[in-house]
Design a protein around this nucleic acid. Structure first.
Lengths: 190, 190, 190, 190
DNA sequence: AATGAATGAGTATTCATTCAT
DNA sequence: TATGAATGAATACTCATTCAT
């Protein structure tokens, strides 16, 4: 690929919503190749957009990654809160939690991968820590629709542990294993 | 740039054990800056050694990281097995497990960080997967000194989840929380 | 090393036609030092341009060499075709051929060297083979303005052999020797 | 491959004839990967010999390449002279020449490749020019067993051209083409 | 408002050669 | 006599960011 004239025909000057599209593409690249490989260039190529367009819309790469992870968190946290709102009892909430873990996350590796990439990136990048913190508090609030704050905190921690373990272990638990662990940990609920 | 203007002349020729020292330095850099920042240059600088020395001793960066993580795993797995060997009963083993998690890992953030960096790196680097796999099977065998294989597997998974959560969460569990979770999961033991 | 301490400050930003200039400079370096010595660095130095500029304009070194040799071939093939178009008879074409070999090539060692460097490079680099192939077919077509395809092929082969021999032998043929060889091989022509 | 301990078991201290073996291995590497790829390391690896062994036996890489090409030339020139000595007449010599070109060279691509690599390397490396010069004078003397000096010179040039063309053209002549060209060029001989 | 060009620092890796043992 | 270790310069290539148009 001759870097410069690579894009050949590209008369796409007016393109409202490009900023938006870039955020989605960034998530695609992160899911596919990891956050370490999510460079300006990689994202520009994936979005079929000139390199300069990225720095035009986002002041820095971290800004772009932040926007991308924020969108991921918004989607995931909303879906989770809906699940919790739909549950009529603590027991139902627990079952919804199992669904969330085995369906939403283990079902689609994309969500799982994005979540873990965010956790890992946040460990070294303070700008992303705000995003994870926000996620945690929203998820905590969703759980508190049915559980007392202390239990909510513990369950949340367990869920995080299970998610990370699912994504990173060489011998991850399957759905049944996760269900058992959750129930044993939560104990009897109404 | 004459590399390190600090070191000025560097008439260092004979340096037995340098290979070994490089492995240790690599672990230092990984613990300090993360595996993503553990480049040839960063490690060479930290070891105060010319760049070419790294590629002389290790054919590729992955080889060096592999050697480093292997050393970390050897240390950690040996210590863990000693703990298990020392325990006289399943109940004692469980308590030793709590010690291991709250003392060895949460006590020294270095071990915790190295462990998580390994997990994360292995997720995208097949060569490192062999190292984690080896670790898992050693740890499993240690647990099976006291627990049946099925329980050993579940406990191992929980431990992994707790470790990852401890390192990556913005609101990690404290020692008490970890102790409770372990006991609840393990159930009553002799 | 601040690259070129000679050039000191280098506030050069706007430089239209640089891509073009780089192609020419690459040919210069190849002619002077051989294709084996035509590294990014060597060409950047010769063009007085920062190293990154090369990889900006050309995705790989092979791409740059390809562009350079393509330009050389375009020039040479056009000149050769003009010679052939200008010839009014097979006999005149043969004489033009002698001119071409003894004038264009032996006269300017630059063209000769570039041609041979291309042949040699193409022997180990498949991407360059396309360039030589293109050249061959253009030259074949030029010859077929006056000669039947079979003879054109043979003459073309002889010319190639003479060019290579001229460039690489320690005792190259002189113009007279070449003229004789050509006429003997072509036999009597109208 | 971990550079240093790569060679694993290698207790081969006493190894007379190693120098010799290195020369042969160098030719192997040149034939397989080209002279540009014939580095100390590549040859050491191919010979299964420690790196230091090369610089112990040969003061420089050029020295080693020189020795290798000299051996190639000795072999080839001797074989050629034998062919010529065996021929009983100029006509037989010519036929032997055809044999030499279509059999020795086109038959085994190894000889062809080595010859061309030598020519090309000598074009930029004065130390190797002595080797080609020696070859040329020996081959000339062989031809002069049957031909007058002037014809010997011309035939020699043609043969060189044919060899180079065979190795480097994208559309090389086949054996028949070569035979025809030789006979047409040599004219009627006794 | 948008982008092609530019660039200096950085990436892993290869290399010929020197040297201490 | 032989070799493992060492090293500084070089290799191609990637990158985040700046800037002129």
């Amino acid at each position: 690929m001759t870097a410069a004239p690579a894009a050949a025909r590209r008369p796409r000057r007016h393109d409202p919503g490009r900023r938006d599209r870039l955020v989605d593409t960034a998530l695609d690249v992160i899911a596919r190749d990891g956050v370490a490989a999510a460079s300006h260039r990689a994202i520009a190529r994936a979005a079929d957009v000139p390199l300069g367009s990225l720095t035009y819309h986002f002041a820095s790469l971290t800004d772009l990654l932040s926007a991308a992870f924020t969108r991921h968190v918004d989607t995931a946290a909303s879906r989770f809160d809906e699940r919790m709102r739909a549950a009529g009892s603590p027991a139902a909430a627990l079952e919804a939690l199992v669904e969330h873990l085995t369906g939403d996350l283990l079902g689609s590796s994309r969500d799982l991968v994005l979540t873990v990439e965010l956790y890992v990136a946040a460990a070294r990048n303070p700008a992303l820590r705000a995003v994870t913190q926000d996620w945690m508090s929203r998820s905590r609030r969703s759980l508190e629709r049915h559980l007392d704050p202390v239990t909510a905190r513990e369950i949340d921690a367990l869920v995080e542990g299970l998610v990370l373990h699912s994504a990173l272990s060489t011998d991850p638990m399957d759905a049944d294993g996760i269900r058992n662990a959750l129930h044993r940990l939560a104990g009897p609920v109404r």
